[in-house]
Design a binder for these strands. Structure first.
Length: 250
DNA sequence: AACGCGTTCAACCGCGCGACC
DNA sequence: CGGTCGCGCGGTTGAACGCGT
């Protein structure tokens, strides 16, 4: 079986995203949704792989993302979940609204893993003098740490702020879209978005057509030449009608 | 100021899975 | 039922940054 490449690498840009690319991606996804990541860059006027667009959106651009500043509670949850789930970062991220699997993974490797290792060394030394000098770096070996007894309750509590609803792949409910990522708005110039027809209200607080974010493919069937970026000049409505029946299915 | 080294994290890559035809 | 496609996941990479000398 020959697997088709996810994208034409010869035409694709790689590396860090520019503000302009971010702008295009945000504008497109907020307006039309991620109906097809593979096709999306073509219609959004981006010379990027669809996977790259998806990753950029999920891990960085989408609203309601918390960045940095992990609370002690969050770290305890991550440690606890990692003990039970292992490296299933998406499952862990599902328990931490606003956190992405990629970010959690990075945080684990850069902070928590080292911290646990230090703790384990201290614990080993204090528990057994006989073991002095026998400590060695066991690589991925992790040890139990002092996880608060209520951490499981925290995880299981859907009424807490740590609702299990959100994950990297389940991220756009109206609940968790409650615009906590206002840094994005305040730090960057998003005046361009005023040019787009946001259906109603503030799209950060009522974004992505409410809960109907994922749209069927025919929802956004392109009408015009996909090579003509709809970001060139006036927005010219490159897509067909909205199929309200399909819309209602979501 | 310049250099080297360690750390961080955004982004890439390859693979597996499920849906569809 | 097998082939294809798109998505999601986890591992890895490398540029950017910070810090010490």
């Amino acid at each position: 079986m020959v697997r088709t490449p996810c994208c034409d690498k010869t035409e694709q840009k790689k590396g860090a995203w520019t503000p302009e690319e971010d702008t295009k991606l945000i504008a497109y996804v907020t307006r039309y949704g991620s109906w097809n990541w593979r096709q999306l860059p073509k219609y959004a006027g981006l010379q990027r792989c669809g996977k790259s667009c998806r990753l950029r959106w999920l891990n960085y651009l989408r609203p309601n993302i918390k960045r940095g500043n992990y609370t002690k509670e969050e770290e305890e949850i991550i440690i606890s979940l990692h003990e039970t789930l292992g490296n299933r970062w998406s499952a862990i991220a599902a328990q931490l609204p606003g956190r992405t699997d990629n970010e959690i993974k990075n945080h684990w490797h850069t902070n928590l893993k080292k911290r646990l290792r230090k703790k384990s060394v201290v614990a080993t030394r204090s528990c057994s003098d006989d073991d002095k000098g026998q400590e060695k770096d066991t690589g991925e070996t992790e040890v139990n740490t002092q996880i608060p007894a209520n951490s499981a309750q925290i995880i299981g509590s859907s009424s807490s702020a740590l609702s299990p609803q959100a994950s990297s792949s389940d991220f756009l409910t109206t609940d968790n879209m409650a615009a906590t990522n206002m840094d994005l708005v305040s730090d960057d110039d998003f005046s361009f978005l005023e040019a787009y027809e946001i259906p109603s209200g503030n799209f950060w607080t009522e974004p992505f057509l409410s809960d109907n974010y994922f749209m069927p493919n025919d929802f956004l069937a392109p009408l015009e030449d996909p090579d003509s970026s709809f970001f060139d000049g006036e927005i010219s409505s490159p897509f067909a009608f909205i199929n309200t029946e399909d819309y209602n299915l979501y």
